[in-house]
Design a protein around this nucleic acid. Structure first.
Lengths: 183, 183
DNA sequence: TTCGTCATGTAATGGGTTACATGATTAC
DNA sequence: GTAATCATGTAACCCATTACATGACGAA
């Protein structure tokens, strides 16, 4: 959430309501963003100096409370992008929420995430194949539908990730040095 | 989490470790289940009398602490399945986690969920189409990839849900009465 | 004897969810 | 005038995440 808010504010200053709309529009498929978490997040970020409001301190206008990202906010955002650990590659939503901000990443962070996600999805696919062979015929139609869904999605994801990886290598010049034995 | 644990325990009594493995196997693609939430959940369920352990009270054996669902647990499970509100149709993972337990639902609860989810996905699809037309050409390739992913998924989901709905109507005899004008 | 995996938990921390509460402005 | 939507927040409650801590058992 913090990350998404900072990323959107990097584009341009906005007030909470607008932020909420942008979040719903762009990331609505990969997470829910309610006022109950948005405003506290904004408050927290303001407390830490990552964002600032444009109205004179002291007053609390009821309307259009615009937030602007600060240098500290920029730094925090960069750090959040860079620190992305296993939870980002293992949770689809966490991964997807970062996608619109890939352009702010260093090329090798991008590669790390894409490859990390691909590896994870591939691993899941293997595990699913194994466990489905074991439990074969013993599942009802709903579980079967779930399994089919999960397998289809994993295969689709891998194709999709491969496309992105290829595009990344084509123009991006990766960031990873040429592999050892490849000269 | 509670729901998933109860659902698995309905199949047969299990200890925590086994439960964790089953969760990872069947639902790993739609949520992460760690010991840090599993054991507290089990504890909570035990406190509320929804599950019971098989060892003599007082002792705490270090090994194979088997949990069994009680009648109260059955009731709680049924209630959780039936109460599924908007969050279940709006959050893919919440929906998917329920899928293996559809067979325990009343036919009309099943229909409600399937139709609810379909409606929600359809709505998202429409909204995405609108907002993409507005922001056309102004998005970078990563955002574009995200949008394509979201649209593809939504379309796939609708086909998948339609298949399930059709199957449901074919044999299930729905539970919904024949529509008014259809005689 | 050491590695993997079986097996069970706790503690702190933090953040999300739901529901509530309020009021201005715009369009019909 | 009234409904929709713009706009901002708070409070309580709960639960998930992460990291930590421990130890037995089986196989190599």
């Amino acid at each position: 959430m913090e990350l998404a808010v900072l990323g959107l504010l990097k584009e341009k200053p906005m007030h909470g309501y607008e932020l909420k709309k942008r979040l719903a529009e762009q990331l609505g498929a990969f997470g829910r963003f309610s006022y109950g978490s948005l405003y506290p997040t904004l408050k927290r970020l303001a407390r830490n100096g990552a964002v600032e409001m444009d109205y004179a301190k002291g007053e609390t206008p009821r309307r259009q409370n615009v937030y602007r990202i600060t240098d500290a906010g920029d730094a925090l955002f960069a750090q959040l992008l860079d620190e992305s650990g296993p939870s980002v590659t293992e949770e689809r939503n966490a991964f997807m929420v970062r996608l619109p901000f890939f352009r702010y990443m260093k090329p090798d962070t991008r590669m790390r995430l894409l490859e990390g996600r691909r590896g994870y999805v591939q691993l899941r696919l293997t595990k699913m194949a194994t466990s489905m062979k074991k439990a074969k015929d013993k599942v009802d139609s709903y579980t079967e539908a779930l399994e089919r869904y999960a397998v289809d999605e994993a295969e689709h994801d891998i194709r999709w990730l491969d496309d992105m990886l290829e595009a990344e290598r084509r123009n991006g010049n990766s960031g990873a040095p040429t592999p050892e034995g490849a000269r």
